Simulated assay, not measured.
Amino acid sequence: MAASKSEKRSTSTVSYKDALKVGLVCGVAVLILSIIVTRAWQDSTAFGFAFVYAGAALVLVSAFACILNWVMRNDTQNDDQSYPILK
Rank of each mutant, 00 (worst) to 15 (best):
I85F: 10
Q77F: 14
S62N: 10
W70I: 07
K21Q: 03
F47P: 00
L33M: 08
T11F: 09
Y16K: 06
T38D: 09
A56T: 14
C66F: 04
A19V: 09
M1H: 10
D75Y: 07
T45F: 07
Q81D: 12
F49P: 01
W70A: 14
K21M: 15
Q77V: 13
A65T: 02
V22I: 13
V22E: 04
S4Y: 00
V71R: 08
A54F: 02
D75M: 09
M72T: 12
K87N: 14
F64C: 04
C26K: 00
Y53G: 12
I67K: 03
F49H: 01
F51I: 02
V28F: 11
K21G: 06
I36P: 03
C66H: 00
K21V: 15
I85D: 00
S82K: 03
L33W: 10
A2K: 10
L58K: 01
S82R: 07
G55D: 02
S44A: 06
I67W: 07
W70D: 09
L31R: 00
K21Y: 03
W41S: 14
S15K: 03
I32F: 05
D18G: 12
C26E: 06
I85L: 10
T45D: 04
N78W: 09
G48S: 09
R39H: 07
L20T: 07
N74I: 11
T38N: 14
T76N: 12
I35W: 00
G27M: 10
L68K: 07
Q42D: 15
L33P: 01
Y83F: 15
S4R: 08
L68E: 05
A65Y: 03
V71W: 02
D80N: 14
I32D: 02
K17C: 08
A63L: 15
S44R: 07
K87W: 10
A29F: 14
T76R: 11
Y53P: 05
A63W: 04
I32C: 04
S10V: 13
L33G: 13
M1E: 12
S82N: 12
R9M: 13
L24T: 15
K5R: 08
T11Q: 03
L33N: 12
R73K: 13
K8S: 04
V25R: 06
D18C: 04
F51S: 03
L58V: 05
K5C: 08
V28D: 00
Q81P: 01
K21E: 10
Q77M: 12
C26G: 07
V14W: 00
G27V: 06
I85P: 03
N74M: 11
F64D: 08
V59S: 11
V25T: 14
S34I: 11
L60T: 08
G48Q: 01
N69D: 10
I85W: 00
A50V: 12
S82W: 05
D80A: 14
S62P: 03
S62V: 04
V37Y: 13
I67S: 02
Y16V: 08
N74G: 12
F64K: 00
L24G: 15
I36N: 11
A40W: 05
S34D: 14
K5E: 12
L58Y: 14
W41Y: 11
K17Q: 06
S4I: 03
L33H: 08
N69L: 06
G55V: 05
K87I: 13
V61N: 01
K5A: 14
A3F: 14
A63S: 08
F51W: 11
L68S: 08
Q81L: 08
I35M: 09
D80F: 13
V61D: 02
S82H: 10
G55S: 04
A46I: 02
W70Y: 11
